[in-house]
């Protein structure tokens, strides 16, 4: 199970850190999180992020997903109408299980990050046999 950290003060918009960069917005990416066979799978929508501009860190049990968007305004065009805004993506989760760091699998296709986080062996339930005295 993954618990979300960092409460966003505006819906869908996470507070940005970093000074001098106050105008940049960071959005909360929509995520799917499920568990299957001792592996937590997290899928996060980060459209507009190039695979190289993605930053995923796991420190102890805190997982940070960060995607940087390069503004991609079409050349020679001026903005006519906007229904969505471009900006970076940040989302932080606190995981309830220890993750086997060597087995983490991360993929980024068509603007979606897919993270497979296998639980460490110690986190899996272990049967303890009780010997009769």
């Amino acid at each position: 199970m993954a618990q979300e950290l960092m409460a966003s003060d505006e819906r869908g918009v996470a507070p940005t850190e970093g000074r001098g960069d106050a105008m940049r917005r960071a959005f909360t990416p929509a995520v799917d999180i499920f568990e299957r066979g001792g592996t937590t799978v997290i899928m996060a929508d980060m459209p507009g992020v190039a695979p190289d501009d993605l930053d995923v860190t796991l420190e102890r049990r805190v997982l940070t997903l960060r995607g940087t968007v390069k503004p991609h305004a079409p050349k020679g065009y001026r903005r006519l109408s906007s229904e969505y805004r471009e900006g970076d993506y940040v989302r932080v989760f606190s995981l309830s299980e220890d993750i086997d760091q060597k087995q983490i699998n991360a993929e980024f296709t068509n603007g979606v990050l897919r993270l497979e986080l296998p639980h460490a062996a110690a986190a899996k339930p272990r049967k303890i046999s009780v010997k009769a005295a």
Binding site: M1, A2, A30, V31, D32, I33, F34, E35, R36, G37, M43, D45, V112
Partner: peptide, 10 residues
């Protein structure tokens, strides 16, 4: 065998 925790994506 899937346990869902969050489903926010379209």
């Amino acid at each position: 065998d899937i346990t869902w925790h969050r489903h926010e994506r379209a």
